[in-house]
Design a protein around this nucleic acid. Structure first.
Lengths: 292, 292
DNA sequence: TTTTTGTCTTTTATCTACAATAGACAGTTC
DNA sequence: GAACTGTCTATTGTAGATAAAAGACAAAAA
């Protein structure tokens, strides 16, 4: 098939949730805006809902006939976009199964393994290449450079430069800048998780990304913000992969974050730099320990 | 056609130059290694040379029959790879013809204009997106963010961070590191161009890239080195585009480079930083002046 | 007049096909 | 026996085709 209708399926599932809460659906453009898809897709969804006798649809009236059941939803694995599937598949391969640095990566083989066309794999590899883990030999294969100690050191070197700069510019944001409110919310979440660390330490990963991204964004520099993608993906898969002492590590990082947040609030450059450096140093250590 | 044989044509042209200098060609694998292509392509080249009665080829013996003439070469425009063609075409569009920030970029239209398939255009845009000038709306078009003042400021901010760090680490390279010899050669070229500035000021652009890349490489950090691609492409097209006062600007930059090189040779961190900052500041000014 | 719907066109995402190129292997030559 | 050639296979780069999704525009409804 030419294109998977994952956009439709995912949007359909999200529409079902909306439907569970109301007795009538809004207009097509409005629905499209809330779900984030075009009217074409909305109309396909409405048609499907009508078929399933979930709604009675006639022009502007979309009356809800019954509540959605579990079997009305499309299964979660059918709503993932192809690029997400390829990314997961690829990361599993290079993190898990004997992926030696220097190994060749074969587009055709990857595509066959994943069960997709080569075009999608190729585009994924091109996009992925900016993470510095693979390199193309023109007219030939890709080379896996590997998730090595050097990689981690180079990554963290740049990260430290960028984050120090971003943290410093955070201090100069106007008092009414929305970032300060977001910082408050993030701080509160830290306290919540710490209060119940034994059962909630796994929530750290997501919060970590949210916090550091907030800091990076205050640089107002697209290159710095974009670079955070690399850090995020590395840490994301790193957390999934290395779970030894996760509870202690995360508790410690949460404490460091709180000190870092407190420093940001003082707007004192020296304090911010010290707290930021302290946290980044221990983040680097954690990452390095998980390698080799 | 499925694939342009530009690799063959370009390799053929380069082989012709080799042929002009010898009376017999080496073995197929050796030729492949010097030209940088596979044996398959080498054999295609030899076959073509035989057809043109340039050589007599029988197994290991490849006797040169005559010197290549101008018409034996493939025209230069046929040896450019598709991605080079697309890049040039695209850059001309966004730098020259009324390319407002916020404009939509249409893959199909671009492909039709350039006369290629959509796949190649798409892959180009994905690769190009890391330069921060365009952004993708999934399932929809790309947005041109534009070569704006903000772009230039963000770019130079990161450049300054990276180059200061790289220059500092240049000072720590061992005395026998090849970079020092390359620095000598580059310095000599600066003097050569300056001595004949009126006729050779156009050579600055290439030398500029060579010098700054050398500095960035001493960081031994793939992210820093890769980032230099963005700077290089921006300055490359910028030089082609903005030619006002090129002679004076280049003369001044050459002088700044010489001071910068002299500072690197002292290995004194403070001097290096001062000279590097001075040059980067004026490079930024030049770039900013050319915008809007 | 403003928003919504019906209908239609255009573009994107993805697959498949195929020539160009790389690369593997066995037999041949030095 | 080391390197080279002949031959064959596999992979990459690119075009073209097609379903999904976006989006344009006029008619209809509020």
């Amino acid at each position: 098939m030419a294109k998977q209708n994952t956009v439709f399926k995912d949007a359909f599932n999200r529409c079902l949730k909306l439907l569970a809460e109301t007795s009538a659906l809004p207009s097509e453009p409005e629905l499209g805006a809330t779900i984030g898809v075009s009217r074409t897709t909305i109309r396909a969804i409405l048609t499907r809902m009508e078929e399933l006798q979930l709604i009675a649809w006639d022009k502007r009236t979309k009356v809800v006939l019954r509540h959605p059941k579990a079997e009305d939803y499309y299964p979660a694995e059918e709503t993932d976009s192809l690029s997400e599937i390829i990314e997961r598949s690829f990361m599993r391969r290079i993190l898990a199964g004997g992926a030696e640095p220097g190994m060749q990566i074969n587009e055709l083989e990857l595509a066959r393994d994943i069960g997709t066309g080569t075009t999608s794999v190729r585009e994924f590899l091109i996009r992925f290449s900016r993470f510095g883990l693979i390199e193309k030999r023109p007219n030939s294969h890709w080379i896996l450079k590997g998730f090595t100690r050097e990689f981690a050191l180079e990554l963290t070197e740049v990260r430290e430069m960028f984050e120090l700069r971003s943290a410093a510019s955070f201090a100069t944001l106007d008092a009414d800048h929305p970032a300060w409110q977001e910082l408050e919310r993030i701080e509160a979440l830290h306290h919540e998780i710490l209060a119940d660390i034994d059962s909630r330490y796994r929530d750290f990963s997501e919060l970590d990304e949210r916090f550091h991204l907030l800091v990076h964004k205050s640089s107002s520099n697209r290159f710095i913000v974009d670079f955070y993608d690399i850090i995020a993906i590395v840490f994301h898969y790193h957390y999934q992969w290395n779970k030894t002492n996760a509870r202690e590590r995360n508790a410690r990082a949460l404490e460091e974050h709180l000190a870092y947040i407190a420093a940001l609030k003082t707007r004192d450059v020296a304090q911010i730099e010290a707290a930021c450096k302290r946290h980044l140093r221990s983040a680097r250590e954690t990452l390095l320990q998980s390698i080799q």
